[in-house]
Write a protein that binds this DNA or RNA. Structure first.
Length: 1125
RNA sequence: GGGCAGGUGGCGAAAUUGGUAGACGCGCAUGGCUUAGGACCAUGUCCCGCAAGGGGUUGGGAGUUCGAGUCUCCCCCUGCCCACCA
């Protein structure tokens, strides 16, 4: 027997496999099911690292196993070949990025092939190949045609020195990676993809997927849906408007409510014009519109209001004038006669509803509809139908009198003024909103405020300028230090309380989330609280905490009634030291302060004093202060044995001195009294309500949880959850918001897919026609950016100058390239039909393989790549280009291999393992198998590379090699029971991707076989087939030496027989009182009585003189004797 | 601050899902074989004990159970991702 020479063997068989094309996968094979196993394709960085081995060689075990199980397995590979490193290398070393990339691909291909993986190279896909990116462009244009692609001014990282746009990873600590210059934010027109349109579906379609829950959860978090409300706060500001109010049918200017509106608006300094519209009882459109137009000069300071039929007059008048105004407000507009269910009205003959909503939208940038919920349903419905047509803010409310005809209609007046819209998830705390905060980017600041005379315009502008320059990173590291500036001369009205509240601009509010404005509730939000403290703003509590015992010793009993009681919590401070009285209840685990009920005719303080004396014996408590509002608690009273709903008034006392009288025995039996140091109280007490009360002593903890509303007008007493619904309805609208933002796909880079768009002087944006695809990346002289922020492509005149495909006139090509996440959003489709020149992949071939059975990849792609490609697939699905809404049936994230020192492998740590070196020394089979053995493959976990561990696997393989000496030539006899067990276990473990335990079973099998005198040929070749997925080269060599001609990798996985899995005898553990004392071997088929008797005999000495209360026999496991105590 | 995942020998890890904790491998120790060995073979490797035997043990504490690494509650610690998301 020769020694195990891995080098010779691996080379020999790799060549053999390639030559015989054993891994070339047909689209279908007779009597075989297709199985699509996908691994993330690599970026061709130039050198393979251990991570690549882990990513490709371990799933290869699975691919080989499924093949041996009779499946037609597609296990493809390619290269994600566009991207920044190639461009950086090109700039640095004056190379051609294509040549650099292609060189790397050629080198890495050899390395990957050295792993002995079963990739089908005939299906290789390379994203920078024009035959590939032609289809990237084509798919992008399909999305464009579907309305999913748009251009938008977006902030980018800009290095003022290098005059270039920087990717996020090129910004280090807010500075340019290359020249260390401070990075600025700069607005640029960029291509975006509307992934947010799919946010809900991306969340909902996760549900049925067979993915690990954590991956689903992090996708949901990334999308970040939150359900809340939008609420409008009317502004009172220095800016003066001219209000024109048009009354309705059978009405007139001289009505009490009109005078009242006038007074309200004039009080704020506005001008108010209320014309009498002619023939109010028999109105004619032309006459009324004429008078409305002549009422005044309309300009961009005019607010046009129409009530009822006046709303129609207002729309028609505005349409006719075709002048821009500030705002259009329609109060309970008259129903269009064409609307289903509209009643017939006398003026239908003299009015026409030919309204140009698009024009109105242009003329009035701000539109508001007021609807009275007391009115008949048909009008409410009509206004709901009108709102989206006008794209108007719809306010549904309860008027003082139906149809807003009361003498005073406060809701109407409130909404006549300009508003700030906020998004909140806590609309229930609206009564506690004592100020508003706008993000520095907020449009109100740009459009209105800075253009008006205001008291501190310069200060605000300066703040906004510096805030906008601050990078996200700076904002982050400075979270505890809130800054901001008040907007002087303007205030908003809290729509719930009617109070004036101040406005601030502060960068703790984000411009890109929600509406860019918040209502601040300092009593129940920690950030707002911090800001309010700093700026001396009022803090109003509107939520009384309610805690509920859902688990633990005092968990409430379902379906039992609650007994309510008013009680106190008395926190008692020591007379001289910083410690407090805590009580530990003896009958239960409860630990807290002095608590007790308030008796009839007693006030809270008196109850507190009484309870302190009764429960602690201390005689001289002095009341200090009440610690905020009531704290509610629902729990099961373990002594009184009843569900309790307690309302605690928290009180702070201090003892005057240590005067103390022994307490009653009945009290002593109930609890122990402890003096606890202030800093240990929080850990000592274990009751929810007590913890809330204690937090108020320091005053630093803000209650942000659920509870019962207080100080909230008619809403007081409601549960916060219910209040949230009701207030959102009454004062705003419910609204879903997402953290997910649209996908910016523009890159100002050379080495990417050119965006196939043309900018025509006449026609605007024109997509490149399909017949002109691909738009090929031209050669350029150098890869430095062009200087104005455009990509190096902008310097290539031949590329840029083109003719418009529509009109043939002068036009310029788009010079941005696509984000590489676009390339990788569909590569798996191309594998199914990699050479197709007519389509990105034919439907027939897709159908053979999609959706993917298993996608294995790195945890770093859990959110972005996975989300982008899921979105992309859904968009294609909606266009009928793919057959499934989801591309990946299963997804698994693999673990991570660390350096030998337990640190992440990196050059700076000096702990990088070079796989080529290890392979040269120990062989590819050893490395593959070691990586599979080191730990569970699909866990959020990491394993250090252990150089000794690798040697151990090598040792295993050498022992296998030596085993061939024991093999006879006869196929005599049945397989051993150990072999049957291994066939089952190894197979099941591979299928479950538990490669580590599969290998340990092979080791157990080897240990067993080594002990044998000889092995039959049949046993030997069976063993080799089990080994084949792990060590494909060695298995093939030994298989061939055993006289086989065909490759082992096209063989069938061996079969096991159930009857050989069962041993003749089993060992039972013998326990006494649950402690293992001994063991006994009994025939496998022995009945309970036999087992029990055998066990009893073994431990007879121990059982002497004891009485057995109970015996538990767990078949094939153990016998437990429970003794009488 | 939020979300997720974890915590088992000297180390990487197993544990039929509530049933003899530590399979398998590494390391270490002793012995054998050897000119040598980072090779190979055998035995051992939680603690006390020569042994028979006894005791302990899955981050800490409590609970449920005949029986808990596994279930429940409280606390502590570590890693990853996100982070002023209203």
């Amino acid at each position: 027997m020769k020694n195990y020479d891995h080098k010779g063997i691996e080379k020999k068989w790799q060549d053999f496999w390639t030559k015989n094309k054993i891994y070339t996968t047909p689209d279908s094979a007779p009597k075989k099911d297709n199985f699509y196993l996908l691994v993330e394709f690599p970026y061709p960085s130039g050198n393979l690292h251990v991570g690549h081995w882990y990513a490709f060689a371990v799933p290869d075990i699975l691919a080989r196993y499924h093949r041996m199980q009779g499946k037609n397995v597609l296990y493809p590979i390619g290269f994600d070949a566009f991207g920044l490193p190639a461009e950086n290398a090109a700039i640095k070393n004056k190379l051609n990025p294509r040549k650099w990339t292609e060189g790397n691909i050629a080198y890495m291909k050899k390395q990957i092939q050295s792993m002995g993986t079963s990739f089908d190279w005939s299906r290789e896909v390379v994203t920078c190949d024009p035959s590939y990116y032609k289809w990237t462009q084509w798919l992008f244009l399909q999305l464009y045609k579907r309305g999913l692609v748009y251009q938008k001014e977006t902030a980018v990282n800009w290095c003022p020195k290098d005059k270039t746009v920087l990717a996020n990873e090129q910004v280090v600590d807010g500075k340019c990676e290359r020249c260390d210059t401070e990075v600025e934010q700069r607005q640029m027109l960029q291509w975006n993809i509307k992934i947010t349109d799919y946010a809900d579906r991306l969340i909902e379609d996760l549900e049925p997927l067979n993915w690990p829950e954590q991956i689903k959860e992090s996708q949901r978090n990334w999308i970040g849906r939150s359900e809340g409300a939008e609420i409008d706060f009317p502004l009172e500001m220095g800016k003066k408007y001219k209000f024109v109010y048009l009354h309705g049918y059978k009405s007139k200017a001289d009505r009490p409510r009109n005078h009242w509106y006038r007074a309200g608006l004039e009080a704020l300094g506005h001008e108010v014009i209320i014309p009498d519209l002619p023939n109010s009882n028999n109105p004619v459109e032309e006459e009324q519109v004429k008078i409305a137009i002549e009422a005044t000069d309309y300009d961009e300071n005019t607010v046009l209001i129409g009530h009822s039929l006046g709303a129609v007059v207002a729309m028609k008048a505005l349409q006719k004038m075709n002048k821009k105004i500030a705002r259009l407000v329609l109060i309970a507009p008259t129903i269009d006669p064409a609307f289903p269910g509209a009643e017939e009205r006398p003026f239908h003959k003299t009015f026409k509803w030919d309204i140009d909503y698009e024009l109105l939208k242009k003329l009035a940038p701000n539109r508001l509809l007021l609807s009275d919920l007391k009115e008949p349903e048909v009008r409410i419905n009509y206004i709901r139908h009108l709102a989206p047509k006008l794209d108007a803010q719809l306010v549904e409310t309860h008027a003082t009198q139906e149809h807003f005809t009361g003498d005073k209609e406060p809701d109407v007046l409130m909404w006549l003024r300009p508003t700030i819209r906020v998004f909140t998830t806590r609309s229930d705390t609206l009564f506690g909103a004592t100020y508003l905060v706008l993000a520095p980017e907020h449009q109100f600041i740009r459009q209105f405020y800075t253009s008006q005379t205001s008291l501190n315009k310069a200060e605000v502008q300066q703040y906004v300028n510096t805030a906008l320059k601050r990078s996200d990173l700076e904002r982050q590291t400075d979270q505890k230090n809130k800054t901001g500036v008040r907007l002087e001369g303007v205030s908003a009205m809290n729509p719930a309380t009617g109070e004036k509240v101040p406005l601030y601009v502060a960068d703790y509010v984000l411009g890109h989330y929600g509406t860019g404005a918040i209502m601040a509730v300092p009593a129940h939000d920690e950030r707002d609280h911090e800001f309010a403290e700093k700026f001396g703003l009022p803090i109003r509590e509107v939520v009384e905490p309610l805690v509920v015992a859902t688990s633990g010793f005092d968990a409430i009993h379902q379906d039992e009634p609650f007994q309510e009681r008013n009680s106190i919590i008395a926190i008692v401070k020591h007379w001289s030291e910083d410690k407090y009285i805590c009580l530990a209840w003896k009958p239960a685990e409860w630990k807290g302060f002095v608590v007790g009920g308030i008796e009839k005719g007693e006030d809270a303080i008196a109850a507190g004093v009484r309870e302190i004396v009764e429960e602690t014996g201390y005689q001289k408590p002095t009341f200090i202060r009440q610690l905020g509002g009531t704290i509610h608690d629902k729990f099961y009273h373990t002594i009184k044995r009843v569900n309790t709903f307690a309302h605690f008034t928290p009180l702070l006392f201090q003892l005057e001195d240590g005067t103390h009288v022994d307490i009653a025995d009945t009290e002593k039996d109930l609890h122990d009294v402890h003096w606890v140091d202030a800093d240990k109280v929080a850990n000592f007490v274990n009751s929810r309500d007590i913890k809330v009360a204690w937090a108020r002593v320091s005053g630093k903890n803000i209650y942000t949880g659920e509870g019962i509303l207080s100080n909230s007008g008619t809403f007081s007493g409601l549960m916060t959850e219910e209040g949230r619904k009701q207030m959102a309805e009454k004062f705003g609208r419910t609204k879903k918001m997402y953290k997910l933002r649209d996908w910016i796909v523009s890159r100002q880079r050379y080495w990417g897919v050119p965006i196939p768009m043309i900018h025509c002087e006449k026609c605007g944006i024109v997509p490149v026609p399909d017949k002109d695809l691909p738009v090929e990346l031209p050669e350029v002289k150098d890869y430095l950016p062009e200087g104005s922020g455009k990509s190096p492509l902008a310097k290539v005149k031949k590329f840029v100058d083109t003719a418009c495909p529509k009109c043939g006139g002068k036009a310029k090509r788009e010079t941005d390239t696509l984000d590489t996440f676009v390339d990788s959003s569909w590569y798996f489709l191309r594998y199914t039909d990699p050479k197709n020149p007519k389509a990105f992949a034919s439907k027939a071939k897709q159908a053979k393989w999609m959706p993917i059975n298993l996608y294995s990849g790195g945890a770093e792609h859990t959110t972005m790549h996975l989300l982008y490609s899921r979105f992309w697939h859904k968009a294609l699905y909606d266009m009928g280009l793919v057959a499934d809404a989801e591309p990946y049936t299963r997804r698994m994230n693999r673990s991570i291999i660390l350096g030998p020192d337990g640190q992440k492998m990196s050059k700076s740590h000096g702990n990088v393992i070079d796989p080529d070196e290890v392979v040269a020394r120990l062989g590819a089979d050893t490395v593959r198998m070691y990586l599979a053995f080191v730990g569970p493959y699909n866990e959020v976990s990491s394993f250090p590379w252990n150089p000794d561990g690798v040697v151990g696997v090598r040792r295993f393989l050498e022992r296998v090699w030596r085993l061939q000496e024991k093999v006879g030539t006869e196929d005599a006899g049945a397989l051993s029971s150990a072999l049957h067990k291994a066939i089952k276990k190894v197979g099941e473990d591979i299928a479950a991707q538990k490669f580590n335990t599969a290998i340990s079973q092979l080791m157990i099998l080897l240990n067993d076989m080594e002990k044998r005198e000889s092995l039959s040929r049949n046993e030997w070749t069976t063993f080799l087939r089990l080994l084949a997925p792990f060590a494909p080269h060695m298995a093939e060599e030994l298989w061939s030496s055993a006289g086989n001609k065909k490759s082992i990798h096209v063989q069938k996985w061996p079969q096991y027989d159930e009857k050989y899995l069962v041993d003749e005898e089993v060992t039972y553990g013998i326990q006494i009182d649950g402690k293992t004392r001994d063991e006994v071997r009994v025939p496998t088929d022995a009945d309970k009585e036999t087992v029990e008797k055998a066990a009893r005999d073994v431990v007879a000495a121990r059982l002497e003189g004891k009485t057995i209360k109970r015996t538990i026999v767990v078949p094939k496991r153990l016998v437990n004797f429970v003794l009488e105590t």
